[in-house]
């Protein structure tokens, strides 16, 4: 104890320096490394190219449409994809191989593709697409229409939600700016 007190003169400066190092280090860890650790990166089960489909002149609504009762059909089922991609192509191009993978793994087995939904909202949220028809899809969704490869999906390791999932305050901010109710049951179920 005596010994430590003796070098206290140089110690104070060292302490401040170390504190500074600790401070900066924490900032680096917190802002740079932590976000990388927090999310796991996942890729879509099938490399679906929106560009290719858009170029064929397929409207977004053809696959993502509102039902007659105003409910959003969401993602197309394997069956509706199979209307065009019912058989393996046998092509050796990257796209051809991907189509064949889809046909083999899902169409033939009758399994739905476990697409990763970037804007995935939890069960306790009700979102009415019918009520938001006036807005551009890209106001909330990633603009995948121009993407040949779907972007990576980041899943929060702790909460299990997609990084792109809109947070409640974002919904509320828009509702407030539009003069729309922010009552709980407008969105929660």
């Amino acid at each position: 104890m005596e010994e430590k007190r003796s070098n206290s003169a140089g110690g104070v400066g060292g302490m401040v320096l170390c504190a500074l190092i600790g401070f900066v280090g924490a900032l680096v860890v917190g802002w740079v490394i932590f976000p990388k650790l927090l999310y796991s990166e996942k890729t879509q089960p099938i490399r679906f190219s929106h560009t290719v489909h858009a170029q064929l002149g397929i409207d977004c609504e053809q696959c993502h449409h509102l039902g007659p009762d105003g409910r959003f059909a969401g993602l197309p089922t394997t069956e509706s994809c199979a209307e065009c991609h019912g058989e393996e192509t046998g092509e050796t191009t990257a796209n051809g191989k991907e189509i064949d993978k889809f046909v083999k793994d899902y169409v033939k087995t009758g399994v739905q593709v476990p697409w990763l939904v970037y804007q995935y909202q939890p069960d306790n949220v009700f979102f009415s697409h019918a009520a938001h028809r006036g807005f551009e899809c890209t106001k909330c969704h990633l603009d995948v229409a121009k993407m040949d490869t779907p972007p990576a999906y980041y899943e929060n390791r702790l909460s299990g939600y997609s990084k792109n999932t809109m947070k409640m305050w974002e919904c509320e901010r828009c509702h407030a700016s539009m003069g729309t109710s922010n009552a709980c049951y407008v969105c929660h179920k």
Binding site: D69, G70, R71, F126, S128, A130, A131, Y185, K189
Partner: peptide
Amino acid sequence: HHRWTLAKDAARA
């Protein structure tokens, strides 16, 4: 209340 949201959606549609 979820039935209300559905009814509203149906009305909108």
